Amino acid sequence: MQPLLPDLPDAFETERLIVRCPQAGDGGRVYEAVRESLDGLRQFPASLPWALDVPSVERSERFCREGLDAFVSRRDFRFLIMLRSDNSVAGCCGLHDPEWSVPAFFAGWWGRTSLLGRGLVTEAVQGLIDFATIHMRARRIAAFVDEYNHRSARVCERVGMQLEGVLRAERADPDGKLRNTRLYAKVTTNHE
């Protein structure tokens, strides 16, 4: 059962990033990051079906406004990954499908193509895990990773998630080709 709208900060900071809930008006910046990153995102259509849609400022603005609404109502927790240096969007991350009785969440993320390889996504995901553990008392955070998404698998390993198994033929591409999914998770049983 979901706690009655637990108090949560809507942002956290890491060494190089401000990771915050999307706001109305953020759509243009999100659109630019998505548009730049489409080729990479579309490599994993079974995991990121939204990337197959034609991007627009309006779709990105809807994503931001719906994310804000879901965050306020504690149904879903989307975050924009922003560079501290210039406040540009470096990607998105989030905690999804909350199971408040545990508490447990599924984490997801993507990074802006021009900024990949700098450890920014790993930094954001580590911050996301810390945020969930501290503020939401999360005991389990899991991630579903396409078996060919080696970058995301490495992010999972760097933040201390363990591979729990491979779900064979778990998702299908739009053309019907079946994809395997690696399930990673980090379990924390100690809350002081």
Rank of each mutant, 00 (worst) to 15 (best):
P174Q: 12
V102E: 02
A132S: 11
V19A: 04
S85C: 04
D86A: 03
T113G: 07
A46I: 05
E170Q: 15
M1A: 11
F131Q: 01
R78Q: 10
E32P: 00
A153H: 11
L128S: 06
S85K: 14
D76C: 05
E192D: 08
A51T: 09
G165A: 09
G176E: 03
C21T: 13
C21S: 10
R59F: 08
Y184F: 15
R158I: 03
K186I: 15
A124E: 04
I141Y: 01
T181M: 13
M1P: 06
L52P: 05
G40P: 05
R158H: 11
G119S: 04
Q162M: 10
S60Y: 08
D175T: 04
G40K: 10
L17A: 06
A51G: 09
G94M: 08
L167Q: 15
R59I: 09
E32G: 00
L115I: 01
H150Q: 13
D97E: 12
V57C: 09
R59T: 11
A132L: 03
P9V: 05
Q162W: 00
F12V: 02
E164K: 05
E36G: 03
C93N: 06
F12Y: 15
S152L: 13
A51P: 08
G27C: 09
V155A: 07
Q162A: 12
V187C: 06
N190F: 13
M1F: 04
D53P: 03
V102S: 09
C92E: 13
F106I: 11
I81D: 01
T122L: 05
H191R: 06
P98N: 08
L48S: 09
K177M: 07
A107S: 15
F44G: 02
L116M: 15
V155F: 07
G127T: 04
V125L: 04
G165H: 10
V187A: 02
D7H: 13
E13P: 00
A46D: 05
N87P: 00
S101Y: 11
